[in-house]
Design a protein around this nucleic acid. Structure first.
Lengths: 231, 231
DNA sequence: TTTGATCTTGACGTTTTCTTGATACGGCGG
DNA sequence: CCGCCGTATCAAGAAAACGTCAAGATCAAA
């Protein structure tokens, strides 16, 4: 269920990186690393990790500056690891946007616990885009797993919801039968196109005013289906 | 312009409280304090502060337990202040729901910086939840761990309460079986879905007028359960 | 040790959801 | 006009998920 987490370590000490990677591997966490601030900024923006471990003592630029630059565009949790234990350093880093500050040497257990805290925080923030679609008299909230039709709640079965979700995630674009089948029933049922007809019919009955003349759940003959927004 | 912030210090050392109050006053922060864990829980639910400073070495109960009890109903940031610097203590507190952990003695500057971080976090995200939920003929006070049905107190067993709390915290949203099992029985029992059925049945018998036709404790087949407010 | 409350476990009936087949519809080319 | 193909609809049986009850097991307090 939980997709593997990715953590970026901006850290120039290979030993520490290796140690971190080993420690995190057992927790379904993949570690990518960057040895310089510049490389870290690039990695952060291209790989978009779930959390960033940031060393303050980087060879090319000040860690606090890295922090600031990251905060210009992202709210990814930043956990600072530093050999400097001065209060001034901590305050500066925290005010630059860091979420936590650990002084080396630190225990791996504490680090993991603080990582858990940071991930807990980022779970509920408005970090990601809003997965709520409103169109016509439909309101579909993928995150809350909730569908309203003209204000009234509509109950969907698990597979109905999965199917609708796949369509809504690709709103206004054609989704092939193959892709839908794979998303809902798994890669093993790619040719049971009949499932699609049955479930699309069910969805139309639950969501459309005139199931025979759908306004949103459009079929693209020979290809797949499409969720149409707007009226 | 900014409305005053209110911080609750659950701390039995008057000296420290006085020092904190003085330090915070200059930052438009009002400090209220509670000398015991029990008093702290009450203050937290009645005053609903913006942040909680929690001493682990309280005279009446374990600080970690206080933390857990708070997390049963609220997401108010909790910053632990402790004389204990052992890694095990930190991990335990952080996993119990604390957001940060400072070891005494600490610098006031660092404390303020960490308070700023915590407040920054709580700004986004949905604010602290209500400590009391009323709907239909039910009145659920998560902070006091009390449940009234039509004015009469209902006795819940520990696990029943945990299950209800997890549902109520996510009122009107679907909570997956996985999440419920993890919250009540721990991460090791994620597939004992039978527990859920038994305990949901118990809860319905205690809280619903017609257990077979529940108005609040709704099941979402194949997914989980949902606590429905209003009619 | 006994007691009482709570938790765990298993069996069994019910409900919901999924799968499957039969049949009907509609556009298109022959 | 007819048959073909992909699609839509409906309903019944199968499978999975859920609700219920009650008998052990566990644990802490008396």
């Amino acid at each position: 269920m939980t997709a593997d987490l990715v953590i970026l370590a901006i850290e120039d000490e290979p030993q520490l990186v290796r140690f971190l990677r080993a420690s995190l591997a057992g927790h379904a966490i993949r570690l990518i690393d960057a040895p310089t601030g510049a490389a870290g900024l690039v990695e952060a923006s291209t790989r978009v990790p779930d959390l960033i471990l940031l060393d303050l003592g980087l060879p090319d630029m000040d860690g606090v500056e890295v922090c600031r630059r990251l905060r210009e565009w992202t709210k990814i949790p930043i956990l600072v690891l530093s050999a400097r234990g001065q209060e001034r350093d901590k305050i500066e880093a925290l005010d630059a946007g860091a979420d936590d500050y650990l002084t080396k040497p630190f225990g791996i257990g504490e680090l993991l616990a603080r990582i858990r805290v940071a991930l807990r925080h980022s779970q509920r923030g408005p970090g990601a885009s809003e997965p709520v679609i409103e169109t016509g008299n439909l309101r579909i909230d993928l995150a809350l797993r909730r569908v309203l039709r003209a204000g009234a709640e509509v109950h969907l079965t698990p597979n109905e919801f999965k199917l609708l979700a796949e369509l809504v995630k690709n709103a206004d674009r054609v989704v092939t039968q193959r892709q839908l089948l794979k998303a809902v029933w798994g890669p093993g049922s790619v040719d049971h196109t009949h499932y699609l007809r049955v479930f699309m019919a069910n969805l139309r009955h639950k969501l459309e005013d005139l199931p025979a003349r759908p306004r949103h759940l459009m079929t693209e003959a020979g290809v797949g289906y499409r969720f149409r927004t707007e009226t």
